[in-house]
């Protein structure tokens, strides 16, 4: 569903934020993207979603190259950023309608999905208020509803649990599992290793812009020849090694 091939990004000549990164995320998979601060997670996500230009390499969404056919590639995915910066002057419903219009979602579908997700995140009434009156968590929820209403094949989330209350965080995780069971794909970055450990089919660990490990938890343990290590221990060992 998502294929990243030898992607690099440098903001200046001397330093690469992402260095020759290659990842393949299969359909129906929850894929965790983890790494220390400044490792290049958000930069990678921004290149996947077409926000940021790549310096080199290719990214394919469902086989479509984001650089050469951005409209078709974007039609198949949606993105939830780590910071819910949206037009505060719109009402929640106006924002959702706008996003649904951009993805050609019919009235019946958008109504059904919006009501379902608004109920899930406790936003039924807030949906009709101006976003400026929302708390940070509510803004995060309206961005999520806007993303989910498009029913994308691939959903890319950057630190999705940040700002969500425990119940919404739980509901989001359950929802992601449900989507994956329907054959959809989830790609998300997180700092909460516990979530990645319990929730992801596979994870990629990135440090200094480079992929340092990839696979299921069992595969990572096997590669390190340490039988019962937690993802946190694996992460710390790998990133410490990388720093040395």
């Amino acid at each position: 569903m998502l294929r990243i091939e030898h992607v690099s990004k440098s903001y200046d000549r001397n330093k690469k934020a992402v260095d020759d990164l290659s990842i393949h995320v299969k359909k129906g998979e929850i894929y965790g993207f983890i790494g220390p601060n400044g490792a290049g997670k958000t930069t990678t996500i921004k290149m996947i979603t077409g926000i940021l230009k790549m310096s080199s390499g290719n990214i394919f969404i469902d086989g479509i190259n984001i650089a050469s056919n951005p409209i078709e590639a974007k039609r198949r995915m949606t993105y939830v950023p780590d910071n819910p910066d949206i037009q505060k002057k719109l009402k929640g419903i106006e924002y959702v309608n706008f996003i649904a219009d951009m993805y050609d979602i019919s009235k019946a579908d958008r109504q059904e999905r919006t009501n379902e997700y608004a109920k899930l995140f406790g936003m039924q009434d807030a949906l009709y208020n101006q976003i400026a009156s929302y708390s940070h968590g509510m803004q995060q929820k309206i961005v999520l509803i806007g993303a989910l209403v498009t029913d994308p094949q691939l959903i890319v989330l950057d630190e999705p649990m940040v700002g969500l209350d425990p119940k919404s965080s739980y509901n989001l995780k359950e929802l992601m599992k449900k989507r994956v069971s329907e054959g959809k794909t989830v790609f998300f970055s997180t700092h909460v290793l516990e979530v990645a450990e319990k929730f992801c089919d596979r994870v990629a660990i990135i440090s200094h812009g480079k992929l340092i490990a990839e696979g299921s938890l069992a595969q990572l343990r096997e590669n390190l020849a340490e039988g019962d290590m937690s993802l946190e221990q694996i992460f710390l060992e790998l990133t410490d090694e990388d720093n040395e």
Binding site: I93, N97, D101, K107, R110, Q111, D125, Y128, A132, S133
Partner: peptide, 26 residues
């Protein structure tokens, strides 16, 4: 910076809030 008026909507009003529009119009 802003104080939004919070008004309770009826289910008909809520339903009417879902509108489709062309990309240009939207």
């Amino acid at each position: 910076s802003s104080k939004s008026k919070k008004k309770k909507l009826s289910s008909e009003e809520k339903s009417a809030s879902f509108k489709t529009a062309s990309k240009v119009k939207s």
